[in-house]
Nucleic acid binder design. Structure first.
Length: 228
DNA sequence: GACCAGGCACATC
DNA sequence: GATGTGCATGGT
């Protein structure tokens, strides 16, 4: 990855697309809920679910814990997997109420990234991507998020092994970049932005469903120029 | 109708 | 450790 120069990729993407201002959400809790609900799910469906939670006065860990499953299920139904996600949401509520204070700060181990990552990963329903998203976007801790877009783009365009482990790829970025939450934040969002841009321009990766006619490189010359 | 979307847990080998 | 499966809605 030394030769990949993550920071240069970041600079090129930032120059191309500008700040993405992630994560969409009005509060750390809403961000965390979004991270959970978006598991294998289109973000537009998640927006509907969150809107339902808001209008149902359910966007709060205590209120969720006091509600019937059926109420939560109906609210988050648009985001799919609504039964398993209802249970996962409850698990996240328990964790949140035990560890996060009213000012959205951890009540112990301040800034201990490893501690809180392990803590989140112990919650059933929170895997690595969800944990890193919550750490980064709810708590502004420098935990790099790897998602399918990141994995695909890195494998297709920057030569990382397609089956590279989550933690392995994550550590490559963590070691190669300044440990700045703002950069991690924008970088992940820019990867998603790039992936969607490539799809829009029909320059998707070979396994992308939206790829139709393209025989050309899946990254347009402008990107190659930027990354050269 | 098929296919996928900002995953995860669990079973099985 | 690798591979397969269930979970479920809504857009293209």
């Amino acid at each position: 990855m030394r030769q990949l120069q993550a920071k240069r990729i970041y600079d090129a993407l930032f120059a191309k697309f500008g700040p993405q201002k992630w994560w969409p959400g009005d509060s750390p809790w809403e961000v965390a809920v979004g991270a959970l609900l978006t598991q294998n799910t289109n973000w537009r469906n998640v927006e509907k679910a969150i809107a339902n939670l808001k209008s149902g006065e359910l966007l709060d860990p205590k209120l969720i814990m006091d509600s019937e499953n059926s109420l939560i299920e109906e609210a988050i139904r648009p985001s799919g997997y609504f039964r398993v996600k209802t249970q996962r949401l409850r698990n996240l509520c328990v964790w949140w109420l035990a560890n996060v204070d009213s000012k959205n700060r951890f009540n112990t181990h301040p800034d201990d990234l490893q501690y809180w990552r392990d803590s989140l990963l112990s919650v059933k329903g929170i895997g690595k991507e969800s944990a890193d998203s919550i750490l980064l976007y709810s708590f502004n801790l420098p935990s790099f998020v790897i998602d399918t877009y990141t994995k695909r783009i890195m494998a297709r365009h920057f030569g990382t092994p397609p089956m590279m482990k989550y933690d392995e790829l994550r550590l490559i970025f963590m070691k190669d970049l300044p440990r700045d939450p703002l950069i991690f934040n924008e970088f992940h969002a820019l990867f998603v932005r790039l992936a969607k841009e490539l799809c829009r321009k029909n320059e998707c990766l070979p396994d992308c469903p939206l790829r139709k006619l393209s025989k050309s490189p899946h990254l347009s010359p402008v990107y190659y120029t930027h990354f050269a």
